[in-house]
Amino acid sequence: MTRRRFDPLRPLRLARALVAHSFSEYAAYRMEMVFWVVGGTLPLFMMFLWIELAEQRATGSFSAADFAAYFLLVFLVRHMTPFVPVPELERAIRHGELSAQLLRPLDPYWPMSASQLMDIAHRLPITVPVVIVGMIWSGAWQVIAFEDWPLLVLAVFGAILLHYNLLYCAGLAAFWMERVRGFEGLMWNGYFVLGGGLAPIALFPDLVQQIIVWSPFRYMISFPIEIAIGRVAPADMWFGFALLTFWVAFSIGLMRLLWHRGLRRYAAYGS
């Protein structure tokens, strides 16, 4: 039996091939992308609502510009975080479509991740101009902490990874359950409400804030935005990144556990 030598460039070649393949898929569905972006405009409506409230009376420590910046960034982060893994995995597991991927010497996690990355990349040409125009129109650009951009990039990367992995775990539950969309609903509520999509976490009651800070949801939306608008004190920054790292590590561990246990139960029906 021949053992292949370790090739450090293989992951890069794989990533390039998978991304190129995903690009082909998304290029085939170019109209769908527009509908996804239009369908994800809820944060913009929330922005107008909170700006109106802020102009009528004091709303915590948030000014109208703060709200504008916050919800424009929620809109951006919302479109940079994936939500496809649950239905995709549910279908693949229930209908046996996973079989084709299991036959290849590559974990199905990677092709789906490449597909998600491409999904995000396809939305950016629409979402980024919307955010830039919104920032200039509302004056929100003035509250952006441009100097913290390296931390922001790290936090956004962590947010995408954490959200994706937790959704992937929810999708893997299809090994045990007929339908797992309920998990998706649960995740969405946690993500959007506790994550700060509905309102900044700083406006929540103190007790709720203390709970949210320890939950994974804060690190999927709110944490990167808090960094972007300069609302994370230096002392809290490391605490935030430590918890983000913990939750990412937890999500990877849980994902691997569910994957290996689930494969034993996989029935490959319909294939």
Binding site: R13, L14, H21, S24, P111, G270
Partner: peptide, 23 residues
């Protein structure tokens, strides 16, 4: 009874991925 290639894109695109996966 089960197609493994992606429905909406040409087979050559899938072949290129397989080329990389199988080195």
């Amino acid at each position: 009874q089960k197609m493994q290639l992606h429905w909406d894109i040409p087979a050559t695109d899938s072949f290129l991925v397989l080329k990389t996966i199988y080195d």
